[in-house]
């Protein structure tokens, strides 16, 4: 089987993969990075979103071989080495932006990508950007609120605060 090499969360990673091995399978099964999840097979739910060369992608819709030489960031690589969560992670906890936690890694990775592109997104921009991330638990209210808070916006006036 061909060998693939990439950098994952700042560390070199390599392994043997088949052509059909998806990036998410490589991350979960070869590297044991099980924080990235698979919630559908039609590229819609976004539980598998990771960053490849700085861009959010669905790791269930990309082959491991295509990530050859790439810089991959997964949810495991977001917090500081001492475990301190980043601003998005902290806001998700502070504002109850997660329940069962299954969609959460993808949500966090998408939210980080959004904030990198648009540091203070509006509610509508956040909702639009999350089109490819499905959450069944939260009704999105607190996810949107958390992302607004993570971007430094005042969320105290949002309904049900």
């Amino acid at each position: 089987m061909p060998q693939v090499k990439m950098t994952v969360n700042g560390k070199p990673a390599s392994g043997e993969v088949e052509g059909r091995t998806l990036l998410v399978e490589f991350l979960r099964e070869n590297l044991g990075l099980t924080g990235t999840h698979v919630g559908c097979d039609t590229s819609q739910c976004g539980a598998c979103v990771v960053h490849v060369d700085g861009k959010a992608v669905k790791s269930c819709t990309m082959f491991a071989a295509e990530a050859e030489g790439a810089e991959v960031l997964t949810i495991e690589g977001v917090a500081a080495p001492d475990g301190t969560m980043d601003a998005v992670q902290q806001a998700f906890q502070e504002h109850h932006g997660l329940q069962c936690g299954f969609c959460t890694p993808g949500m966090v990775m998408s939210a980080r990508a959004l904030l990198a592109e648009n540091p203070t997104p509006s509610e509508a921009e956040i909702r639009d950007y999350l089109e490819g991330n499905i959450c069944r638990c939260t009704g999105y209210h607190n996810i949107v609120k958390a992302i607004m808070a993570a971007s430094g916006q005042d969320v105290s006036t949002i309904a049900a605060e």
Binding site: K58, S110, L114, E131, G132, N133
Partner: peptide, 9 residues
């Protein structure tokens, strides 16, 4: 088209 992650690929 699609969503942001889809548009990146």
């Amino acid at each position: 088209i699609g969503d942001p992650a889809v548009r990146n690929r």
